[in-house]
């Protein structure tokens, strides 16, 4: 296991976000969702975007994915401007967004089979990634016959089979129970290690961020901006019960709550 700080310094820059502003034109006036956001991600990094609800995490991720246009600023992958969604960036949605009319196998093979890859090659790819997420036995099931955890595994395999360079994940485990979530977190780390993917993972759980990330990007709201970046140099696999883990968790939690009026809230409840 290489030292993550070494990876950060030597790996090429894969994603660059410069001076990003985003204003939504809502019916009751404009909403400033992001203000001058800068972010540099190196190949192979695991980044967690952390922040309170409404601070613009999804907006930032969706702009990187190309689903949303920035009002100002630029997003570049390997130095090339992002103009729309593309197979170099794969998104895993919180609500899965699987194609309900396709079986597990065909969902996973969707990307390659629409890029004129030979059917035998598609089958090979599909089998490989189905095995990687442990769904080979469910190859011919439809999404409505799967549990939430299995659906999210299909969604991850679908992006992997499409050979994406950057895996974008928007609270992918938010709807799962604690046991399934921790199993999937472990699997994700394993997949990330074997595939050497770059991951940008949105969460509002400090523990999840400290558990998974090389670097936690803390965001604050109104307007959404990047507040601080914390490198997590804990060795993997990480022990959530260890003193170092909890020290980091406390530190980042404090950072977060200082921006949502957490301190004032605490004194207010102490008075009453």
């Amino acid at each position: 296991m290489p030292d993550p700080s070494v990876v950060r310094e030597t790996a090429p820059v894969i994603l660059q976000v410069i001076g990003l502003n985003k204003v939504y034109e809502a019916s009751n006036g404009p909403v400033e969702a992001l203000r001058s956001v800068d972010l540099t991600v190196r190949k192979g990094e695991f980044i967690c975007l952390l922040g309170a609800s409404g601070c613009g995490k999804s907006t930032l991720l969706r702009i990187i994915a190309g689903f949303e246009q920035a009002t100002q600023g630029e997003v570049a992958v390997y130095g090339r401007d992002v103009k729309g969604p593309g197979p170099d960036r794969g998104m895993v949605f919180q609500d899965y967004a699987l194609f309900p009319w396709l079986t597990v196998r065909d969902n996973i093979g969707f990307g390659p089979s629409h890029r004129r890859v030979a059917p035998s090659e598609v089958a090979k790819l599909t089998d490989r990634f189905m095995a990687m997420v442990g769904l080979t036995a469910f190859a011919d099931r439809y999404p409505h016959q799967l549990s939430g955890g299995m659906k999210q595994r299909v969604a991850i395999a679908r992006v992997l089979a499409n050979d994406a360079d950057i895996l974008l994940m928007d609270e992918p485990f938010g709807a799962l129970d604690a046991l399934t979530r921790s199993a999937l977190q472990e699997e994700l780390i394993e997949i990330w290690r074997t595939t050497k993917l770059t991951v940008i993972f949105v969460t509002h759980s400090v523990e999840e961020a400290v558990l998974l990330a090389d670097r936690v990007v803390v965001m604050s709201s109104s307007p959404g901006r990047i507040d601080r970046q914390a490198e997590i140099n804990l060795p993997r696999p990480r022990d959530v019960a260890s003193a170092e883990f909890n020290a980091l968790r406390r530190e980042i939690t404090q950072q977060l709550t200082s921006h949502v009026g957490g301190r004032r809230l605490v004194t207010a409840t102490a008075d009453s």
Partner: peptide
């Protein structure tokens, strides 16, 4: 569901391909 168009887009399926791959079955 617009998510399905987004999912297809990020998987590299776009333009007229979308009709057969997403619009018709959905």
């Amino acid at each position: 569901d617009v998510r399905l168009f987004e999912a297809a887009g990020m998987l590299g399926c776009s333009g007229p391909q979308l009709f057969r791959a997403v619009v018709l079955p959905a």
